[in-house]
Design a protein around this nucleic acid. Structure first.
Length: 354
DNA sequence: TCTGGGGTCCTAGGACCC
DNA sequence: TCTGGGGTCCTAGGACCC
């Protein structure tokens, strides 16, 4: 028999945690994200009451405010959400051969060796939902399928507090009526390109000429065609090795005050440096990100011939990358990231590195 | 609709090495 | 003399995920 994969997706995670911590919020529209008074930034998560007003995650906070000025607007409390996420991942880990975290609030579980059929997988999923609710007072939606793609789309099919099973022989028909946008890896740009080719649904994609898809999208084209048939060979993989760590900040107002920008950049470098020390890495590459008033965004990087973990190296390279590449426009965002990470030797690994 | 902050992966050209 | 083929690393940009 093939694999059985679960996708667990916490229901409106950030706002659900806020409601749990402060029950007075229940029943009211709640939005976690940027400060609507400042007006810049987006909605991170909103609860179902807020969605009734048309608010969605990713939407500019100014628009959310116009749609529902009476909603409760809360800042993003990452430290709290990370702690809750860690608890939930520890619960999930017990139920799976392999677990792949996908952001703070989602995970794939390969349970192939733990269950003998989809009925048993369904019982397991119910048990997971019970335990998460008992321990954390939070609900989730779970999708069960023959691979990650189908499991993920299944978890999204019935929310909140849903459980959807899609067997291997049902996958094609299940996917066919859905928008291509539901497929993993199809975002706004690819959706638009596909629409221009007359492809709107997964069914349209499944019956399209695969060689034409390969011509237009390259390797991605073949993947798209397979996904449309419900086929996805990707493994559930435990990610041990972190690839990069960074910090970025959008200013309240665009600025051309270079001293100010350098000051913020130094502060971001210090934050990144703290994370490096906390997780015990050294790095070789520093990347500077800069976004101008017209939203034009650039990244510049420099790789050292040696590894380091010194704050002064980080600050100096970040500053150089900034002043060597500036255009004559006001600056909207500045960010710094380190990669080419090398774990320091002889140190024990953190159990869950979030 | 005037677009956050944390990330990952892919592509493509060029340097450099054997 | 005007010319290779394979491999790896670096850099910049872009699409995508939550």
């Amino acid at each position: 028999m093939g694999k059985i994969i679960l996708h667990v997706d916490m229901d409106h995670f950030f706002t659900a945690i806020e409601e749990r911590e402060n029950p007075e919020l229940r029943g009211k529209p709640v939005v976690v994200g940027a400060d609507p008074k400042k007006g810049r930034g987006v909605v991170s998560t909103c609860n179902y009451e807020a969605r009734k007003f048309g608010i969605k995650s990713g939407m500019p906070i100014s628009r959310a405010y116009k749609l529902c000025p009476d909603a409760v607007f809360l800042p993003v409390n990452y430290e709290l959400y990370k702690k809750v996420s860690k608890n939930i991942m520890e619960i999930l880990r017990k139920y799976a051969d392999k677990l792949e975290r996908w952001g703070l609030d989602e995970a794939f579980l390969d349970v192939s060796s733990r269950v003998k059929d989809y009925e048993e997988a369904k019982s397991l999923a119910k048990e997971i939902k019970r335990e998460i609710f008992k321990r954390e007072k939070l609900t989730c939606s779970i999708g069960i399928g023959p691979n990650k793609l189908v499991a993920k789309i299944a978890s999204d099919f019935n929310k909140p507090d849903g459980l959807t099973v899609v067997r291997e022989n049902e996958a094609r028909d299940f996917l066919a009526p859905l928008s291509v946008r539901k497929l993993i890896g199809v975002g706004r740009k690819t959706e638009k390109k596909l629409r221009e080719m007359g492809i709107k649904t997964v069914g349209d994609l499944a019956s399209y000429d695969p060689s034409k898809l390969a011509d237009v999208f390259g390797v991605m084209g073949s993947k798209l065609y397979l996904m449309a048939q419900g086929i996805d060979g990707s493994e559930v993989r435990e990610r041990e090795d972190r690839k990069s760590m960074g910090r970025e900040l959008t200013f309240d107002e665009d600025t051309d005050d270079l001293d100010f920008v350098v000051g913020v950049l130094d502060m971001l470098s210090e934050c990144v440096h703290k994370d490096i020390l906390k997780r015990d890495f050294s790095f070789k590459t520093v990347t500077l990100k800069i976004r101008y008033e017209n939203f034009e965004t650039h990244v510049y990087s420099k790789t050292l011939p040696f590894r380091t973990r010194q704050l002064e190296h980080l600050k100096k390279i970040a500053r150089e990358l900034l002043v060597n590449n500036l255009k004559g426009l006001k600056i909207r965002l500045i960010g710094v990231r380190v990669s080419n990470l090398i774990p320091m030797k002889g140190q024990k690994k953190l159990e869950v590195d979030i």
